[in-house]
Structure formats: structure tokens, C-alpha cells
Design a binder for these strands. Structure first.
Lengths: 116, 116
DNA sequence: ACACCATAGTGTGTGAGACACACTATGGCA
DNA sequence: TGCCATAGTGTGTCTCACACACTATGGTGT
């Protein structure tokens, strides 16, 4: 009765597709309080947003390049860490994505109600 | 006061990423009552699931190849139309995706509440 | 009668992004 | 001092969304 994470690669693929955009949204929301990649990785996974390190690191760089995140190296402590923070543009995008998420949610609910 | 669909290509891209998996889910749900591509296209767009013809047609073929949809040509009427119907596997996947969608929804809500 | 448009679908690119794999480097601890 | 967790970068592959081009048919206008 347990939910096997990925028995069928086809199912796993579609589950992943569904998650795709949500990782961006989750990162933008989470980094409103600044943090570095590795910590965010664990935080998101704890929150049930399954994301791989090899997905998150490039994602953070991409979002920074798009101006949605800013970054700075913290060299105060012994180990240098790259701290990211959501920019104003990123915050705007997050709001837009959340709105669209709710819109989609309503649309899907509508659909499922029509075909019971 | 209207919601401009895509002023910024970056924003548009992320909005699309968010939609990605939902089109599959919407198609699987909608085709529990059989239908053909063109009608589904218009139905989804009316329901607020924005999807292009060049996206939907290949998607339907892909889902059929994966065994999530079945298809048959309706040649009774003058114009032949390819009718798709969600298979049992497709129905299972739809249920799984819906469950995951709700899981993600809860996770995101959690995140946003933690960083007000 | 036939030209034209909406409908309905197929086939072939191309580009972007997710993920795998491989790699560097450092701090802490046994 | 050797090993593992931490922290991040770089490269390649594969899939998917979308653009573009194409075939084909039914209805409508003239």
C-alpha cells in the first residue's frame, strides 16, 4: 500500500513534468530569505519538493542570469558559500506563478468535475 | 486591468514550464469521455489550459504510444476524425498526477506561509 | 462550378531545460 | 591522515514544446 516512487519510468516521467515549474516557484519563494544552494536543496526535499542537486544548481545559476535571483559569496566563515536572494523581479514572477498555479488548479478541478 | 499574457519572454517561459505537466493531466482527464484532437484543443483552451495545436497533436500521439490513450478512426461521418480515449493505465496515471498535484499544492502553501 | 477558408491531422526540424555523470575542493572527525 | 559530508562547477544527452510546412476535406460564397 506504499506509494512506490517510480515503478514505471513513464509514470515517473510525467510526475516529473508536473513538478518542473514548481521547483522554480519554490526556489523563488524560499529565497525571499537568503540561503545557499545546498541548504535550499535539503529544505526543498524536506518540504516534499523532490529535486536533485544536478537540477537545482544549474537552475539557480539560470535564475540568477535571468535577474530573478542575486548572489554573493559569503567568505566570512571558513567555508565559502554562495548565498542567493530573490530579487524584486523574482518576487514579481513568484506572485505571477502563484496566481497561475491557482488558475490552473481551478481549471483542473473544473475538468475533473465535468467528467466524474 | 487585463492580465497581459506574455510581456516578458522570461516570465512567459516560466509560466509555460508551470503548465507543462498539467496539459497531460488535463488531456487524460478530459478524454475519459472520448474525443478528437481538434475539439479537445478548443475545449482545453476554453477551460484556461492554454495549449497550442502543434503541442497537443504530438502530445496525443506520445500518450498513445505510451499506452495511456487509445485511438480509433471514426469514419462513420463524412470527415474522418481520430478519436482518443483514456486507457485504464491513463486513468491510473491521472489519479497519481492529481494526488501529486495536491501534494505539491500543500508543499507550496507551506513554503509561502513560512516566508510571508 | 470552383475558389477559398475553417477544420483536422501528419511530419520534420530546432532550441531550451532537466537530469546524469564526472569532477574539484574543503572542513570535520575517527 | 584518510575518509565522508558538504558545496559547487562543467559537460553531455535526451525529451519535449513549439514553429513551419504540408496534405486533405467539407462548407460557403460568387
Amino acid at each position: 500500500m506504499d506509494v512506490d516512487p517510480s515503478p514505471d519510468p513513464v509514470v515517473a516521467g510525467h510526475l516529473q513534468e508536473l513538478r518542473r515549474g514548481t521547483v522554480v516557484l519554490a526556489a523563488l519563494v524560499a529565497l525571499r530569505t537568503p540561503g545557499y544552494g545546498y541548504a535550499l536543496l535539503e529544505s526543498l526535499n524536506e518540504h516534499g519538493i523532490g529535486v536533485d542537486a544536478n537540477t537545482l544548481y544549474p537552475l539557480l545559476r539560470r535564475l540568477e542570469k535571468q535577474g530573478l535571483l542575486t548572489s554573493e559569496w559569503n567568505t566570512d566563515e571558513s567555508r565559502p558559500r554562495k548565498f542567493y536572494r530573490t530579487s524584486d523581479e523574482g518576487d514579481d514572477l513568484a506572485a505571477t506563478l502563484i496566481a497561475d498555479w491557482h488558475r490552473l488548479d481551478a481549471s483542473l478541478r473544473h475538468l475533473t468535475e465535468e467528467t466524474p
